[in-house]
Amino acid sequence: MKISKTNVSVGMGGTLIITIFVVLCLMIFAVLSFVTAYSDLKLSNKAQEITADYYYIHGKAEEKLAEISDVLYGIDINEEMDNILKKLSDIDGVYVDEENFKLQYEVFGEENQKISVTLNLLHKNRFYYEIEAWNLSKIELPVYEDEIIDIWEGIE
């Protein structure tokens, strides 16, 4: 019986190339999954910053409310109106609407948001306030430039 011998060489580098290819693929998947997770974390961090800023300015608005309440508490009901208005306008950052007997103030946050408060001033045996409006709004709205497009107006 005749035996024929065949020499098969896989060739230097075949296995290495496959290994490097697999490693590169896995590396890309690992980096992509990290990037996705990190973007989610950045998004939740941003949401937290805005929320924390909102509650911070809410706290500041409540603090101002306490200050106004203390001033109102200290006012004698029989005091002259000019004197009452002067005491109220002495509160820092508070606008007094003398005509409608209202107080207005705003508290600004760092994340482009503000709280605007309007209080009605009332009295029975002493002065007190009633919250008319407590609004959260943007400090600056983005300005979009109008884009004018020439369109065909048809045949007259």
């Binding site: 706290g59 500041k60 409310l65 508490y73 306030y129 009633e130 919250i131 407590w134």
Partner: peptide, 18 residues
């Protein structure tokens, strides 16, 4: 994980919403 700081004022007279 998360932290929020704020204040709340409870008046002894008035202070309700209109």
């Amino acid at each position: 994980i998360y932290s929020i700081e704020s204040k709340k004022f409870f008046p002894s007279f008035g202070g309700v919403y209109e």
